[in-house]
C-alpha cells in the first residue's frame, strides 16, 4: 500500500538546511496497523506529511497504492488525498462553524457527492463512531474525545485506503484515548490500513507494528504482541 525507499527530506532554515529524514525505507501493506514512535523532533510528522501528500520529499521513491508519487501538482495531490487518504490530527482540526455532521460530510463535498446523499453517508459514519445524537452540534459543544471521533468519522467517510493519524490521542485523557484507539482498531479490523504517530507506549502497543524513528532514521521495526494475538 505504502512503499518508501531511501527517502530524504530537508527543510531550508535560512542559508542552512535541516536534514530531517535521512534515508527511510518502509513498506506498509494493505490492512496493516502501524505506529511510528520517536521523540519530539525526530521527523515523525514530516514522514506522515509526505505519506499524506501534504509535503514533498527531496530524494528517494514513494509509491502509494503502487503509483509512483512524482511531480505532484496541488490539484493531483488533492485528488489523490481525497481518494486514498483520510487524516486525523492531534488538534482535531474540525471547522468550527460547521456542525459535526457537516464536518464529516465535507470530504464528500469535494468528491462531488450531492448534499442529501452526503449528509446521509456522514450520518452513518457518525453513528459508527457513536455520535449520531451529536450530529447537529458544533465542535465547541463536544468533548475532546468526541471531537476526535468526529474527525475519525470524517477521515473514514470517503472510504480511504489509508487513515493517517498524527498523535490522535495527544490531546486526550486516558479513558478517551482508549475509546479512540478502540475505534481505530475496529477500523483496522474491517481491513483498512491505519498509520498512527504517537509517543505514548500504551498507544503504540495497541497497534500491530511499531516503527521507531530517531534522528531521521528508522532504528527498529517490530510487530507487537497485539499482532500475534489475532
Amino acid at each position: 500500500m505504502i512503499k518508501i525507499e531511501k527517502l530524504h527530506k530537508s527543510y531550508p532554515i535560512g542559508k542552512d538546511s535541516l536534514h530531517v529524514l535521512k534515508g527511510i525505507d518502509l513498506h506498509i501493506k494493505e490492512g496493516e496497523f502501524v505506529s511510528i514512535m520517536g521523540s519530539s523532533g525526530s521527523g515523525k510528522s514530516t514522514l506522515l506529511n509526505i505519506v499524506g501528500l501534504l509535503d514533498i520529499h527531496d530524494e528517494g521513491h514513494y509509491y502509494l497504492n503502487g503509483q509512483l508519487i512524482k511531480d505532484m501538482n496541488e490539484k493531483k495531490a488533492a485528488l489523490l488525498r481525497n481518494k486514498f487518504l483520510g487524516f486525523v490530527f492531534q488538534s482535531f482540526n474540525l471547522i468550527s462553524y460547521k456542525t459535526a455532521l457537516e464536518n464529516v460530510a465535507l470530504p464528500l463535498y469535494y468528491k462531488g457527492m450531492g448534499r442529501k446523499e452526503r449528509l446521509q453517508v456522514a450520518l452513518d459514519y457518525l453513528e459508527k463512531v457513536g455520535l449520531k445524537d451529536w450530529a447537529n452540534h458544533l465542535p465547541n459543544e463536544l468533548s475532546g474525545g468526541q471531537k476526535q471521533r468526529v474527525a475519525i468519522a470524517r477521515a473514514l467517510v470517503t472510504k480511504p485506503k489509508v487513515v493517517l493519524a498524527d498523535e490522535p490521542t495527544g490531546a486526550l485523557d486516558s479513558t478517551t484515548t482508549d475509546s479512540v484507539m478502540d475505534l481505530l482498531k475496529d477500523i483496522n479490523n474491517e481491513g483498512m490500513t491505519v498509520f498512527v504517530i504517537t509517543h505514548e507506549e500504551e498507544v503504540a502497543e495497541q497497534t500491530k507494528r511499531i516503527v521507531r524513528l530517531k534522528d531521521g532514521v528508522i532504528i527498529s521495526d517490530e510487530f507487537t504482541k497485539a499482532s500475534k494475538a489475532v
Binding site: 499524506g52 490539484k75 488533492a78 488525498r81 487524516f87 482540526n93 474540525l94 469535494y110 470517503t158
Partner: peptide, 16 residues
C-alpha cells in the same frame, strides 16, 4: 489559513 489547510487536506483543489 487553518480552515483552508483543513479543506485542502480533505481534498479541496486550489481551484475550488
Amino acid at each position: 489559513t487553518q480552515e483552508i489547510g483543513i479543506r485542502r487536506a480533505l481534498g479541496a483543489t486550489p481551484k475550488s
